[in-house]
Nucleic acid binder design. Structure first.
Lengths: 234, 234
DNA sequence: AAAACTTGTAGTCATGTTGACTATAAGAAT
DNA sequence: ATTCTTATAGTCAACATGACTACAAGTTTT
């Protein structure tokens, strides 16, 4: 088996297995993805999905959390496994199968702290991302497709919004994820019928037009919908 | 790293990585799953999901095909990866992460040929399956949940039917997968509106009642629906 | 041969959902 | 005061849905 120097848990990792993660965020009505600049290794100074090696005695889901925290400083997020990517030549020099995750978080809640083997961490507009190393482009595509599908039958998109938000923000979130345009009155009608949103007794502040009502989730309905699934077709 | 004897590609496999597969079939209006009886190893003589080790120079998808063919004799099927299961203690004695696949096939098209490390291979009614070893019960649950979700937005369920089939067979397939009952006329109306089915100029034979029309897929529409996705809500 | 039985297939109807659109409200900026 | 922007309410025709009824085309029973 080919070997190579890597400085994380050198003696303890599962040599042929890594984790890579697509972290989605939503800011200024755009869908964003968090990339890290590698500080060392084969792709030093290139932007790539955050990832790393799984320790021998570590649950893979735990490993994904650990890597994200160490590389980017992001701690609280919705994290879900996508699938394993295992083409023979996906990684140079040796055989490495990677388990891909995707995560949803709120960029404004965190200060990015590049750490470990990352010299920088930044949010990119998803449409601007090109030329990722290895098969990270493929992983990103797969992640986005999964997100597009998932927001239609689970209320997970809400993990990307601040706690209190307007209906337009919610609509723009769907528009950004699905790359479509929606009719405002119809969107309102549809989303309100689900009883998922509860109006706060608060309005937007600091906007130069009529202030919109702020809403938050009814967590009971949220949990129920998450469990039962629902269909949100446009 | 803990070691152990296994007699498949002993020197060439990725030690910590295996593949397990849930193969679905549909027979006598019931949803079935193919299990194999292990001929050796830790769970000798127990029924379990077919699976095995990935070779060092083998694409994981190719490995899944190979294992299914070797263990069960089943060659042509729809095969899709689910995800990796990687709890630390899921496998005794050493750390093994498994990549789970699920497959759809037509039981009547194949003779089961247990081979390799399997002494027997048989179709089981999915509701009758209990006490699978390792975390195979969890993998089976996950597979079924994925199948339930997937048949609602892709025409994949059709991989389980014979080439020519009646509308009732199709309806019973949905009923078996989703564990629901459907109204016959309404089901017809809905499925026919999709233009997915083309009537063969043939009727059922050998039935003791009015013979139903046989249908097959319009492969063009089938491919288009597979690509675009659709919603089949009941 | 007629009646009873089983499954297939067509159609009805009230209700609900959808998409496209109009209208008005509530502010801020000019 | 007028204009601009976004919020929010409501209308309407077209379509989809779920619950049924009715009838057709065969087999089996009597």
């Amino acid at each position: 088996m080919a070997t190579e120097n890597h400085n994380i848990f050198t003696s303890e990792i599962i040599d042929a297995l890594s984790i890579d993660c697509t972290i989605f965020g939503f800011q200024e009505s755009r869908l964003k993805v968090l990339l890290v600049k590698h500080a060392e290794g084969i792709i030093k100074n290139q932007w790539a999905l955050p990832g790393g090696w799984v320790a021998y005695n570590e649950d893979i889901h735990v490993a994904a959390y650990r890597l994200l925290k160490d590389l980017t400083g992001v701690k609280e997020l919705y994290l879900e496994q996508l699938k394993a990517f295992g083409e023979v030549d996906r990684y140079p020099k040796k055989r490495v199968i990677t388990i891909a995750y995707y995560a949803l978080t709120r960029p404004e809640n965190y200060q990015l702290i590049p750490g470990f083997t990352a010299s920088d961490a930044r949010w990119f507009n998803i449409e601007d991302i090109a030329n990722l190393p290895y098969d990270h482009g493929q992983i990103l595509d797969f992640s986005w497709r999964r997100l597009k599908r998932k927001v239609k039958y689970a209320p997970i998109g809400f993990n990307l919004l601040p706690e209190k938000f307007t209906l337009l923000q919610l609509q723009e979130l769907y528009e950004a994820i699905l790359e479509i345009r929606l009719d405002k009155p119809n969107f309102r009608r549809k989303i309100m019928k689900m009883n998922l949103l509860v109006p706060c007794d608060e309005k937007q502040i600091g906007v130069s037009h009529r202030a919109a009502n702020l809403y938050h989730f009814d967590m009971q309905v949220y949990d129920k919908l998450t469990e039962d699934g629902f269909i949100f077709e446009f």
